[in-house]
Nucleic acid binder design. Sequence first.
RNA 1: CGGGAUGUGGCUCAGUCUGGUAGAGCGCUGCGUUCGGGACGCAGAGACCGGAGGUUCAAAUCCUCUCAUCCCGACCA
Length: 580
Amino acid sequence: MRLSRYYIPTLKEDPAEAEVISHKLLMRAGMIRKLTSGIYAYLPLGHKAVNKVAAILREEMNRAGAIEIFMPSVQPGDLWKETGRWDFYGKELLRFKDRHGRDYCLGPTHEEIITDLVRGEVRSYKQLPLNLYQIQTKFRDEIRPRFGLMRGREFLMKDAYSFDKDEAGAEESYRGMYQAYTAAFERLGLKFRAVQADSGAIGGDFSHEFMVLADTGEDTIAVCEDRECGYAANLEKAAVAFVGGDLGTGAECPAAEEVATPGTHTVEELCAFLKIEPSTLVKTLLFVADGEPVAALVRGDRELNEVKLRNLLGANEIEMADEKRVREWTGAPVGFAGPVGLKVERIFADSELELDQGWTTGANKGDAHLLNVHLGRDSKVEKFADLRVIEESDSCPKCGARIGFTKGIEVGHVFKLGTKYSKAMDAKYLDENGKEQLMIMGCYGIGVSRIVAAAIEQNNDENGAIFPPSIAPFEAAIISLGGKDEAVVNKADELYEELCAGGLDVIYDDRNERPGVKFNDADLIGYPMQLVLGGKGLKNGIIEAKDRRSGERVELPLDGFSEAFAAWRKGVWQGWGLEG
RNA sequence: CGGGAUGUGGCUCAGUCUGGUAGAGCGCUGCGUUCGGGACGCAGAGACCGGAGGUUCAAAUCCUCUCAUCCCGACCA
């Protein structure tokens, strides 16, 4: 492509609306433009990068035996009512009515549609397993879209759905997708990790998230420092190594005693007042879980993991109790809740609290706390369970080594759905014995547009983006410094034709611009390879080749250029851990 | 939805407090010079100052309402 006839509107300055680096660079490199909050137009370069990602995903999905289809983004409300998600999905689901007043929504995901499609066609075990996927625009009316392509409302997603006749088959499908994802992310040239994850609103039995590692990522991942072990999990999923014990009867524990603690609403204030450590007291947190009051206890220096509590309760939604409810249940202002005499039936405690007795807790009374509380003797805890957020330096739940934290961007998610949707929508087949069985499903998503943003978040420097060659909108740029020097222009033209003929996706900067402008644009956009041809180089029979990532420059001979270039190109790809 | 901020040529911003003829830099057009890391000179085009209402002789500026965007908290590819 000749740049003089192409469309890459680069910006010299960061747009005011962009905060994170990928958003700034995508805008500045002329790859995207915002239409409205969380909704972007893809300019030629952005579209090209997205397509390169999509092509790799398509290849890996096909290789794994999945079959591409394309489903509508406008979906009838009836199907969502059938699974109950019309009511449960929340405001993220953009709903509207057609001229007849019928309910519709813009698809945030396609379980309902695919299940409807398959139940109408698939009748026999002979047709299973089946794995269908699409690459398609999704719409989620996010509460707060931000960070450009990282969290848009409209975005491109690859979503696959597997249908199997039994659990074993479903697990095999799941493994197949897991492997396909691993292969795809490797080809994309991204540093990533597959981590255990909570299955969230879509539901299901177990799931993994694929995280692109970047310091600017929104998610925190707990990773075992023992590489052999390989345990990695999303913070909200990461199990804490079991530390429970025998609570005993409390016979040796002195009787609970009330002390006045005026004005101590927080753990810090209380500890300062009583001159004790946060690890010796119990925090009592009050929630409303699907409308029902629940209390959760964790040690004073720990943080409650709401996802673990929600899963323990099997609840759909949990939220912190408001001040009014806290007063009602404790008879005290916020900050003095405790398990003893609490007007909440269901009390759950973190396993760790089973290890010790004689805790300091709130007294359910203004300006007072209790000392020497024994959770078995003085209160009725329904269950001790893993409820707290894992901390850095905690033990790995799998091998006991240290846990470290790292940041990541979620770009893929694999779920085993089980029969959640097939049951709700009656997707059945006849087995070998002519008996009706529910299909076992799995679903597998990859944020295609988000990958482009994540690639930049992971790879950039002060001059701009640095694209892995497999994703880059163009693999290489020829920068001609010819100006009016016809010899240089002719040679650059010739090289361009040659590279194109060789099948290389190359952009040729033939603009009548000063060298600095061309260099800066090329660095900003982040083509992995730059080929610079100037008057001096031509005279000496060489062209300068720059590896954008390492910054290394080498001189390639013009005589025998193809071979020299091919060898150098291979080296650049290898620098990314990739094979051209 | 709560909390904070911002809306002024295509872009980044000044001007608003203290009302009085709309500015700068970049970009864009033309001509000339320049040409290996965002050149320079000259000449130009381009803005109902987010919108509506109000106060005033006079509003980008003060008041009221509204819309949009961005940032911090609960969701997710």
